[in-house]
Design a protein around this nucleic acid. Structure first.
Lengths: 144, 144
DNA sequence: GCGTAGTCTACTAATTCTATAGACAAAATG
DNA sequence: CATTTTGTCTATAGAATTAGTAGACTACGC
């Protein structure tokens, strides 16, 4: 399961993607519209900013805005930033690899094989899913 | 990430699958060979027994043994038992569905679509991965 | 300089996960 | 039928992680 932090991040980013190139958006605005605790959201946006996904502007008329094009921000990256490993076992994680304590022979572990398969399929889908794609699928919906 | 509980369960089941139809195996034996805290393992095996995956025999010469054929126990079922939902969002879970608080229009949610895709691929792989398959892939390995 | 809005550090609270203790129940054996 | 072996079950403790809050600080615009 995704953490709330990660869900909040995705919702905030989709919200900002809808307003791409329309100037900075207040934290307050995002927090209210997406029902995210403001202080928690601050921390999340800061992290996304440090990852060069968002930019910010201080002072009056300031706020956050998408730095990259919506099609250049995918869920794989967001999830890794927020929750860490995407894989279901540490021993199959590409970015957060750790050997399994219990396994002696990783190369021949039948369990590991399964989760390598799951990981590959998951990463394939998540890396194809960028903000532009998500917006496109938001069919007739008129989000507030 | 899988919980330790779930990993322990999988390892214990693979261990028992290797000894299918060879009589009951002590908790103690499984715990030692697979490096699982005995008391924790007890609780896990009990749950697997209540789910009709294992049977047990009390008294001297007792222990646990696989009740079903190894090919009839897959990782999807084990993971649901141990960790609950497999999906990454409650609103796409088949067995543990809950609406997303933030979503107003589930039908048109672009985020949801992505995770339905991830869920389907994950379930496909996990449901194909039964204990017999896992043993088969345990290539030359000689597990103690 | 004043108000607005993001930055950063440090906590606290809540929840979930991991592990353990100990009393109890059933089966096998002599 | 008493003893030993091994699983059953409830309750709880400890650890780790996640979620959320507080408040002082910095930069910007007017």
């Amino acid at each position: 399961m995704l953490s709330k932090k990660c869900k909040y991040a995705i919702h905030a980013l989709v919200y900002l993607a809808e307003r791409y190139q329309q100037g900075p958006v207040h934290i307050q605005d995002i927090a209210e519209q997406q029902h995210i605790p403001k202080k928690f959201l601050e921390a999340i946006l800061l992290e996304l900013r440090n990852a060069k996904i968002l930019h910010s502007k201080k002072g009056k008329g300031g706020g956050y805005y998408l730095y990259r094009k919506p099609e250049d921000v995918n869920l794989m990256e967001i999830m890794r930033l927020m929750d860490g490993a995407i894989a279901m076992l540490p021993c199959v994680s590409l970015n957060y690899y750790e050997p399994c304590e219990e396994c002696r022979d990783e190369k021949n572990c039948g369990i590991r094989d399964v989760f390598i398969g799951v990981r590959d399929e998951t990463l394939r889908i998540l890396s194809e899913s960028n903000l532009a794609e998500i917006l496109k699928r938001q069919k007739g919906e008129r989000r507030v």
